[in-house]
Design a binder for these strands. Sequence first.
DNA 1: TTCATCTGTAATAAAAAAAATTACAGTACA
DNA 2: TGTACTGTAATTTTTTTTATTACAGATGAA
Lengths: 135, 135
Amino acid sequence: MNGRFQIAIHILTLLSRANNELLSSEYIAGSININPALVRKEISNLRKKGLIKSKEGKAGGYSLGIPAHEIKLSAIYQAVKQQQILGQAKNVPNPYCPVGKQINKHLQHLYGEMEDVLSAKLGALNLAEFSTKFD
Amino acid sequence: MNGRFQIAIHILTLLSRANNELLSSEYIAGSININPALVRKEISNLRKKGLIKSKEGKAGGYSLGIPAHEIKLSAIYQAVKQQQILGQAKNVPNPYCPVGKQINKHLQHLYGEMEDVLSAKLGALNLAEFSTKFD
DNA sequence: TTCATCTGTAATAAAAAAAATTACAGTACA
DNA sequence: TGTACTGTAATTTTTTTTATTACAGATGAA
């Protein structure tokens, strides 16, 4: 669960409460208290996944790409997670050790199962439900 | 799921296969391919949680603190996770924004639920089972 | 006793990752 | 044609993680 999930869900929550009014990156950044360029960067990613629409130019800004009740939290998680969390492809364990030789494979499998239960849990919640907490 | 979990489970797997023979930090470090001081540091933590026993001095080394089948993977996870993953207590969202004001509380709750399902999943597996994968 | 081989721990440095900042081209409205 | 936005890249700063070095203390053995 990295910091990007937090930013992404914050952005999406703001948009889901905006009633189709466009919000600017500066406004969003003000609510999160981070730099507008970071907001635009994360939105750039979420837009590619279809979760957000943007309009350029004067009076431009952002809105949800699909209705909030169709956005499962698992979709946000998937959109934001970079690569397999599995550690450090760099740290190559000792290939001459029976444990070192295989452990990454087994951990990979274990982590996959973990992701599955997380996704299942997050898939049971959607953005509309999450947003109502702020009423 | 951070890098320390990977190191911790690697250490514990080695110990569980050592048949009560003591392993040195240097041997363990050689299998993981990291620095022996890091191994000792992580073991220092796992020892405080009772998962590992150590013996100082010449011919010293490490062994499991309790039988492998009594070590749930969730216990390893708990031992290793530092603080609530919840992001950045530093990044304080805008308190004048209805979303910014409450989002950390709601995320905290959400993350708590996530931890619960993870722990449940990991609690169904123990170190002995994990170790048999290496036979 | 004294040497050799370990652990325990702290201090420091190096490397990697994350976050912030700055800058500016492109777009659209008025 | 000016203004207010987005899109994106380049760069710097900060934070976190990992590695290294060092050495005191413990223990067993010659």
